[in-house]
């Protein structure tokens, strides 16, 4: 394989890895929220990127948010809530980790 082909292949692999990492990040974050809801005995619901995290949306209360914050920090080493940010949607959390 020539040098240019090799570079193109590496670039394609890198992009594919990034897509895969992003997908995995999305899935993991949604799974965390689903786990918290399950622990609270709340009915299963579809969690979308655009879902609002609180009140009329997914309905996380303040203690659930504290739990999510701790879970995110434990998994990724930092979390938006203790970084003085207030994500409103699932996508906002994904974006915080650069997955947007």
């Amino acid at each position: 394989m020539g040098g240019l082909d090799c570079l193109l292949t590496q670039s394609a692999n890198h992009a594919s890895r990034q897509r895969s990492d992003k997908l995995s990040l999305d899935i993991d974050i949604i799974a965390m929220i689903a786990t918290i809801l399950k622990h609270q005995g709340l009915p299963e619901q579809e969690i979308r990127h655009s879902s609002t995290l609180y009140d009329e949306g997914i309905g996380l209360d303040s203690l659930c948010v504290a739990e999510l914050s701790a879970m995110l920090e434990k998994t990724y080493g930092r979390d938006p809530y203790t970084s003085k940010q207030l994500p409103m949607t699932v996508q906002d959390i994904v974006d915080f980790y650069g997955g947007g």
């Binding site: 622990h39 203690l63 504290a66 739990e67 914050s69 701790a70 879970m71 920090e73 434990k74």
Partner: peptide, 8 residues
């Protein structure tokens, strides 16, 4: 308490 929250 943050890690206690995760273990309930």
């Amino acid at each position: 308490s943050r890690s206690m929250l995760l273990r309930h």
